[in-house]
Design a protein around this nucleic acid. Structure first.
Lengths: 219, 219
DNA sequence: TAGATTGTTAATCGATTAACAATC
DNA sequence: TAGATTGTTAATCGATTAACAATC
């Protein structure tokens, strides 16, 4: 009944594997060993083998891994063999930037609709997709098969909007609002807190500078 | 000589602490115990105390933590007491979205310049900041005190540009390009790979749906 | 067959949680 | 002083790395 649950640490590494394998594939490389891949990606060969073996054997003893096959398998694991229709809530700079990003389309993520509280924006288009007023959200969700909602609105409205999304069957939220969403079990939230990321960078640079100050003092 | 190195797991949690403490502060709450904070943030009280104690004692036995003090201390640890001048390389949708994001300014991150390969864009402005051609990058870095470069360009050019940045003294790169940058020791890179994040979301929703299918079969 | 390299088990390392003595 | 809650040590858990037998 209970399948071995894969840890998020492993899942988090899959997209990077996919990227390297895609590049190898484009270079026409057919096979690769965990050793070679480990040198390329700067991780241990042991980790690579462990990671892949979470999903069953993708390789062959004495040979290594077939690049094309592995590439497809990891894509499949990540759900890239399916289509994911998404909408964007919030037609500000970030929302429009994400709507315009065509590479998502190539991975099966299809941009279907955009919403904004500002009535001035209603009717305008982003890459052929109409911006709709928030009042039309529920109806749109009922009429369309939407898998993912992208939240690019200020944190003040985010929790309320997330509730409306969940109530109308959205099961995945890509959250760029700077707030924690509290959703029922079974609804997936992936947070992208840009300012948190920037603060981490700030910490690491500040720390490095301080270390150097100390080193030069003691020298 | 060697200070206890703080793990990135801890650093990664600091911005979230800062956010909750800021909200508590704005609500006028003066003190909080690790127990109360743990309920609010849905982490263990033990982890909170361990995390804070990496940086020395911020609390007081029998009392808890002073919200205002703790908020400032964590901000200081993250380097938010300093100014960080930054430039953005790549004036596409994402670059402009980040340039327009005024909240960074409030944290001490000052938007100083923007560059793009497209000569058509040269001279235009994003929030009062001039877009410059890439040829002017080196001169600009020499004339200005730039701490952070934000890379919002396609992966094809990213590695080359990162090299130029590092050569001219940039010590921190906020990398939105979908490629791993190989920088010398001492240069900090913080990656924001949006498509990786989206794939994780895709995995987790696909997986959840499959689990439910299985459950309903066995039921 | 011999060599290469996986799949997998065992050992190690690090991070999280629990427990409690110190102390405000 | 008694009660509360931290700071910190010890126990547990999970993730990473090492080792090697299985096998192509």
């Amino acid at each position: 009944m209970e399948e071995k649950e894969i840890s998020q640490a492993v899942i988090g590494r899959l997209p990077r594997y996919l990227r390297y394998l895609g590049e190898l594939k484009d270079e026409g490389i057919e096979r690769i060993s965990s050793q070679e891949l480990s040198e390329l990606m700067k991780v241990t060969a042991s980790q690579i083998r462990q990671d892949f073996n979470n999903f069953g054997g993708f390789g062959q003893q004495g040979y290594g891994y077939n690049v094309e096959y592995l590439y497809h398998e990891i894509g499949r694991i990540l759900g890239l063999d399916r289509r994911h229709n998404f909408i964007i809530i919030g037609a500000g700079n970030l929302g429009r930037a994400l709507g315009n990003y065509i590479n998502f389309e190539r991975r099966g993520f299809i941009f279907k609709g955009m919403f904004d509280t500002n009535p001035q924006l209603a009717g305008r288009e982003v890459r052929g997709v109409r911006i709709m007023p928030m009042e039309e959200l529920e109806q749109f969700l009922q009429d369309n098969d939407i898998d993912i909602a992208v939240l690019t609105i200020p944190k003040t409205g985010a929790v309320e909007v997330a509730g409306r999304l969940v109530k109308n069957g959205v099961r995945a939220i890509w959250n760029f609002a700077h707030v924690d969403l509290n959703v029922p079990e079974g609804v997936q939230v992936e947070n992208v807190h840009l300012s948190d990321s920037l603060m981490k960078l700030s910490y690491n640079t500040s720390r490095y500078m301080k270390e150097n100050e100390r080193d030069s003092e003691t020298a």
